[in-house]
Design a protein around this nucleic acid. Structure first.
Lengths: 351, 351
DNA sequence: CTGAAAGCGCTAACAT
DNA sequence: ATGTTAGCGCTTTCAG
């Protein structure tokens, strides 16, 4: 078998110095080396192609200089901006970012087996995106592993470290847009109510409706589960009734379930936005290409990622984490063709 | 500061045995322990919440039990099935999979700085997906790091370890479908010709056209760069000519550039499939929701991921890697609304 | 059946 | 200005 990577000891030997000298020098520590010594060490390292062994260093330093980011499902493209934010901060602070798709570790029981992810001892801390509120496993696991953890895009009353957005405001922007178009009969394809985000978006929906003096009709609300099929089923439930009992617009709690919603709407023979307006949260290039192109709300996802990473990293150096809500930049509407004034006969509010 | 994780030494002490005994026993090695010893060790480990330190183990074993998967851009959702395949195999063999978005390490020079990814020494080997042929850095880097590497979905004449698909056949399926619909004037929004996949898809296109006795018109071929804007521009180049000089169908070399293509087509006031049929490679739920829904070719991506991971893992135990082409399962057509017979006046072949 | 001891590659006091 | 030494937590001969 071929020789592995050269070790520090070998470099030192080649340069005729002690390992400690080589170690200091190669890390740029201290100042006063004899110019010749420095040269010899540098040359030797260069010549042998020396690269420090992270593992040995980590073992010695008791620090991996790496953090993990756990996401549930990479097919859900709504999260990439969060990832960007996390990446930026990690790079700035010279941490390695390890992305892990949590679904990958799902055991037979349906629950996620966090142990199977093999992150134990490979990272100094972990960012958990979109963990549902009722997944006690994450928290337990992080505790057992003594792994500092920050929840991203999900808060949990019982956990002290999280970064979320002002979902109330996000949803308010959507409702406002619809109201301005003349809608009064508005329904909601929500996220799972057991998730913090799903819950807060739904509460935000109710609040925004009340603010505009509109009725929240339970039969116009259904759980789209934040995924494609869920969005489809929810829309079907809400819309498969006589025309006069239907809402004229649907606020959808995330982008991928909005795709399912559109699908159901078309299956029912309805047109968007002629019969029904649809607006969704989370902006992505895909929204430009749906049929019709989707009006969306762009949220501060990148900032969310940044703040979460910053919090995790600073908590590694002893700072106390906290519950943070991102409010800047504010959510902005990206108006496309899926929203329009309600059909003439549908503008009456019978709620 | 709070006590870290308990060490093996502490467990051993608590159980009143030597670390070596605890080590063996906890790993399930050997057989003959005194029942009482076993119980004491197990109890102690349980009580203290012992988890082995991966780093120390890795240092000792000279093996990380982890592999990396480098992808260029997570916004490109075409790769998730490959990821699934890789994940399966990694899990089966109890390897941890670290996903890294390579774009993240891009330096100012535009090139990717692989060192900055910080994978060095954290993984035993690496899978590189979609690396372009002219990126000498990857190969150099892997060599310098003595990191076994397998190229996924990209071959390179000079590199001995890769897994690719039969792009010739993938493209043939698309051309065949169009020909069966009656098209004879077919254009191609290709991938970058400096990438192996882009090149092979284009060659496949030319070959398939020849096979059907159709002319390959250079002005009907443009590089869509495998991304959104590229697909848009390429389509514009090809289509922004008098109607009688346009193709009646476009074969697009990947899904995301097909979105850009659709966008350009609409901007030009053309309808799909009325004026122009569009077919793309790579299947994804998003294709069901474009306007109109896209006819695609589903390729054996998962299998590709599996084979690549298997090759990497087996090369870690000394097997010689090779260049593999996946041919099974065969590519299958997913027919949707974006393909139809050519317009009556367009079926004439003036090529 | 279990313990002692060496050492993976590195860093950080503590010497000179 | 550089060398000596100990040790991070684990596995593995080699001895009993």
């Amino acid at each position: 078998m071929r020789r592995g990577r050269p070790t520090l000891r070998e470099v030192a030997a080649a340069a005729g110095v002690d390992v400690s000298t080589a170690s200091r020098l190669l890390r740029g520590q201290d100042m006063p080396y004899r110019a010749e010594t420095r040269q010899r060490v540098l040359d030797a390292a260069e010549k042998l192609g020396y690269r420090p062994n992270q593992q040995a260093r980590a073992l010695r330093l008791q620090r991996q200089q790496a953090i993990g980011l756990l996401v549930p499902d990479l097919d859900n493209f709504g999260f990439t901006q969060i990832l960007r934010g996390v990446q930026e901060v990690a790079a700035e602070q010279e941490y390695t970012l390890m992305l892990v798709e949590a679904g990958a570790g799902a055991g037979e029981g349906g629950g996620i087996s966090y142990e199977r992810l093999g992150l134990e001892g490979r990272v100094d801390g972990i960012l958990v995106a979109f963990a549902s509120m009722d997944d006690p496993n994450v928290q337990e696991w992080a505790e057992r592993e003594r792994l500092p953890m920050v929840l991203v895009q999900r808060g949990t009353p019982s956990y002290p470290a999280s970064v979320v957005m002002d979902e109330q405001r996000n949803v308010a922007v959507m409702v406002q847009h619809l109201v301005e178009l003349g809608h009064r009969r508005i329904g909601h394809v929500s996220g799972p109510l057991r998730t913090d985000t799903g819950l807060r978006r739904q509460e935000g929906f109710a609040a925004a409706m009340r603010e505009h003096g509109l009725a929240v009709r339970p039969e116009w609300i259904a759980d789209g589960g934040f995924h494609w099929t869920g969005g489809q089923q929810a829309a079907r439930e809400i819309l498969d009734v006589p025309a006069e009992e239907r809402p004229t617009a649907l606020v959808v709690a995330n982008l991928i379930s909005a795709l399912g919603t559109l699908s159901a709407v078309h299956d029912l023979g309805l047109t968007v936005p002629g019969d029904l307006s649809v607006i969704a949260i989370d902006e992505h290039i895909v929204a430009e290409h749906t049929n019709p192109p989707l009006t969306t709300v762009q949220t501060p996802q990148r900032e969310l990622g940044r703040r979460a990473a910053q919090m995790l990293l600073s908590s590694l150096s002893g700072d106390k984490p906290s519950r943070v809500m991102i409010t800047d930049p504010p959510p902005t509407l990206v108006v496309r063709a899926s929203t329009a004034p309600p059909p003439p006969d549908g503008s009456a509010d019978n709620g």
